[in-house]
């Protein structure tokens, strides 16, 4: 399988603090990669570098053969770790924006996902609860037929019912001809989704590999391995 993401020697600093230190990472097409690590480990920094929201101090990122920019933004479907939809928007406006900006947006799929998430098109974003906003953002992201999906902490801070809905939506809507990168520190809830896991701590890759191989090799679940590494 070809690599949709190739990262070489990636370093990112905030003033004097090194958030990422010389990271190398490949993501193959068709795989779901879990970036696992505690808060402050550099997960969101890595995601933001991939989505072009941050710029690296050194190193190289190639997504679909391009450096982060207009092209890569058109092939990435990104779920940030917070609601970024404009406060004046209704659900209908948000759908319209995705439809206008992304050629791969599937309107039918968005209708189905909104129904599944029990979201009304006339609802205003600013009147929604945190869980509802999370579900709306996920519905928008999964309604695209993107080459790469990047989900930053998709289940953090939502109630167990919403969490199950979100996980079901991710599993059911994941397409084989794309790749998915998910960051989380809630490993137990998500570990069955991952084909590959990357343990990130203090801006460095502590361990990475095929999820199944690691389970067999270490004779433990990914969640237990996470606790062993970061505990």
């Amino acid at each position: 399988m070809e690599n949709i993401v190739e990262i070489r020697g990636l370093t990112k600093r905030y003033n004097r603090t090194e958030a990422l230190k010389n990271i190398d990472l490949d993501v193959e097409m068709g795989k779901v990669v879990g970036i696992l690590g505690p808060n402050g480990s550099g997960k969101t920094t890595l995601i933001k570098l991939l989505t072009g929201l941050l710029h690296p101090n050194s190193g190289e990122i190639k997504i679909d053969g391009h450096s982060p920019g207009v092209h890569t933004k058109s092939v990435i479907s990104y779920l940030p770790d917070r609601n970024a939809l404009y406060s004046w928007m209704t659900v209908k406006d948000a759908l319209g924006m995705y439809k206008d900006f992304y050629e791969d947006f599937d309107e039918k799929k968005s209708e189905d996902l909104l129904q599944f998430m029990k979201l009304d098109k006339d609802m205003k974003v600013s009147n929604m609860s945190k869980g509802m906003k999370e579900k709306l953002n996920l519905a928008l992201v999964l309604s695209r037929k993107a080459k790469i999906y990047i989900l930053d902490e998709p289940i953090a801070g939502v109630d167990p019912v919403a969490r199950d809905q979100i996980l079901d939506a991710i599993i059911e809507n994941y397409a084989e001809d794309s790749a998915m990168i998910i960051t989380t520190h809630l490993v137990r809830d998500m570990e069955n989704i991952f084909d590959k896991v990357v343990f990130l701590g203090d801006g460095e890759i502590m361990l990475s590999g095929d999820a199944e191989d690691l389970r067999e090799e270490k004779n433990m679940q990914i969640d237990e391995l996470y606790k062993e590494i970061f505990g």
Partner: peptide, 13 residues
């Protein structure tokens, strides 16, 4: 503000 996460992720130069 947070809205930048949406704006700067759009395929816009």
């Amino acid at each position: 503000e947070d809205r930048g996460y949406l704006t700067f992720a759009l395929p816009l130069s």
